[in-house]
Design a protein around this nucleic acid. Structure first.
Length: 579
DNA sequence: GCCGTTTTCGGCCCGACTGTTTTCAGTCG
């Protein structure tokens, strides 16, 4: 049965192609709204189609046309409208939209006038200076596209961790039907929880590798088999994600799992330490080297491999040769933060601005998730596109929060918060007398990304020094695989956070994960508390917390390093106080 | 294409910036 996510993706693609064609903007938006409604729906659209297709019209944002498309899609698995759109426009032209500054209109001109259909062709057109001859384009645009191409081309090679995870979950279910598999484990950057994953490494223990490989070949979504030997097989999914399967003997399973988990730097350090002890470590096991002969010592499990060097089994997230070996020398490893430690979520939006759920619905969902406190942090007025809150509207919302807290009677604490913009010229987007009434203020930059380093840094330093600011949200402004962070002196920012006793956000959205792992470690070093927030724009987004926690673990953060592992009563007095 | 209603069609989050222009279209958030 077709998933809601699949149906939503299909509608999004229709919207993209229509937009590229220059279709009515509101029609395009209607498809996007429909897609979003379906993505956020808890009931299964395919199930509704099966039982009562008219029920689709009950969904807010779905009208007769989108409902019709959903029905056809759910029943036949394809959509004629999409097929005909694809005949007119090659899918690859949509890659151009990933380049910042290039929207559907300009991309369409490049396609029609120059016949550009791929990023490679676009690069060639820029380099031969043909783009600047088009009406509405110039040398600056050409240079901007060339820069954007580097980002887009790199992005094409790596997939968001959460996308890889979807494949992992589906593949796990699929392979569980294969009786010849005794054990299977995923390794590589996926296991280390990196924000993006290049390809998936899968290890399998089995005496019948041929059957395992046959089974992998039958996995839904496999586009092509890239290679197949006795112990190794590689396939590419239709999403572009490559899966490398290795069938490994029992005595090497732990060694192989360790080896293929990496990272490379971690393994280099491990082998260096082994050599000092007269040992050798590779993907087959740990060996004692005596002259020209090698004796197998261990390799069935990771415990055996690390144990042979008197090292603990490091959590995969920290195997980067940054601090884990130093930690191991100083006694038992600290326990890294876990999702269950998180008691509150201090950044989320409601229908007052660009969220899809009401204040009450967000609170209810947070309580169901077991959170003890949340902060409602809708946008401030500068973010006009989402009807950012004026002082009046913000105060009205806070009055609603007071009433809601009375109803909740302590089962959940809802904090009066705001995501206040740091303006381009410096300063905050709301007056002090308003901010003074907030329980929690996250300050963030949404405009002026391209300002020079000293300007951006000064804006952030000023915000950190402001008495009513609690934390800086998504501190570097990056969008993974899409846009680099703005140019900022993050060390100066972290030092200022330390001086003023302010928190730094780790935004858990998979496309942000900002702070990144290295900055998290730097914050910890300076004694700056990191607050992990979902920045939820819907009830469903509250579940993104796990991605933030994973990134925090990669930065080596423990319970104590993360602000919102504490009760609000304990946390509140720490804001603005030096550690 | 969806929605609300003025039950039959008009309105649909909007302000600023950029690079191209000479008054604006496209893009972004």
């Amino acid at each position: 049965m077709l998933t809601n996510a699949h149906i939503a993706d299909t509608l999004e693609l229709v919207a993209d192609l229509l937009e590229f064609q220059g279709a009515n903007a509101f029609r395009v938006r209607a498809y996007r709204n429909g897609a979003r409604a379906i993505r956020d729906l808890s009931a299964s659209v395919a199930q509704i189609v099966l039982e009562n297709p008219a029920g689709l019209l009950e969904i807010d944002g779905v009208g007769t046309s989108v409902a019709e498309k959903c029905t056809v899609l759910a029943r036949t698995g394809s959509l004629p409208q999409l097929e005909s759109l694809r005949e007119e426009i090659p899918d690859t032209v949509l890659d151009m939209l990933r380049i910042p500054g290039l929207g559907p209109k300009k991309a369409s001109v490049l396609y029609r006038e120059l016949g550009v259909t791929t990023l490679a062709a676009l690069r060639e057109a820029c380099e031969s200076q043909r783009v600047r001859t088009l009406k509405g384009f110039g040398a600056r645009t050409e240079a901007l596209i060339l820069h954007g191409l580097r980002v887009a081309e790199a992005a094409a090679k790596r997939h968001f961790w959460c996308e890889a995870d979807e494949t992992v979950q589906a593949l796990t279910r699929h392979l569980e039907t294969c009786a010849d598999i005794e054990r299977m484990r995923f390794a590589g950057s996926y296991r280390r929880g990196k924000e993006t994953v290049g390809d998936l490494d899968l290890l399998v223990l089995s005496s019948r590798s041929d059957r395992v490989m046959d089974c992998l070949g039958r996995f839904a979504g496999v586009a092509e088999t890239l290679g197949r030997g006795d112990t190794k097989m590689s396939v590419r999914m239709d999403t572009g994600l490559q899966i490398d399967l290795r069938v490994v003997p029992r005595e090497s399973f732990g060694a192989a799992w360790q080896y293929f988990t990496g990272s490379k730097d971690h393994n280099v350090e491990l082998r260096r330490r082994a050599k000092q002890r007269g040992l050798k470590i590779n993907e087959y096991g740990v060996f004692r080297v005596e002259g020209a002969t090698e004796h197998y010592l261990a390799g069935q499990s990771e415990e055996e491999v690390y144990g042979a060097l008197d090292l603990p089994v490091f959590p995969p997230e920290i195997r980067e040769a940054r601090f884990e070996f130093r930690w191991a020398e100083n006694g038992p490893l600290p326990r890294l933060v876990e999702e269950a430690d998180i008691l509150g979520d201090l950044h989320m939006h409601t229908t007052a601005t660009d969220g899809t759920a009401s204040l009450e619905a967000m609170a209810q969902a947070a309580r169901t998730r077991g959170l003890k406190y949340i902060a409602i942090t809708d946008h401030s007025q500068r973010v006009a596109m989402v009807r950012g809150l004026t002082p009046d509207r913000l105060l009205q919302q806070w009055a609603c929060i007071d009433r809601l807290n009375a109803e909740l009677a302590g089962s959940l604490t809802v904090l009066k918060g705001v995501e206040c913009d740091i303006l381009e010229r410096g300063g905050l987007d709301l007056p002090d007398d308003v901010l003074a009434q907030a329980d929690w203020v996250v300050a963030s930059i949404h405009f002026g990304h391209r300002q020079p380093r000293d300007r951006i840094t000064a804006r952030l330093l000023e915000a950190l020094a402001h008495p009513y600011v609690s934390a800086i949200a998504h501190p570097t402004g990056r969008a993974i695989n899409y846009r680099d962070s703005y140019d900022v002196d993050m060390e100066a920012v972290l030092r200022a956070a330390s001086v003023h006793g302010k928190f730094m956000e780790l935004n858990a959205n998979p496309s942000r994960l900002d702070l990144d792992d290295v900055h998290c470690a730097a914050a910890k070093e300076l004694g700056v508390l990191v607050v992990i927030n979902t920045d939820a724009h819907s009830v469903r987004d509250l579940a993104l917390m796990r991605h933030g926690v994973q990134q925090a673990r990669r930065g080596g953060l423990t319970h104590a390093d993360v602000a919102n592992t504490r009760e609000w009563d304990e946390l509140k007095p720490r804001i603005g106080r030096r550690r």
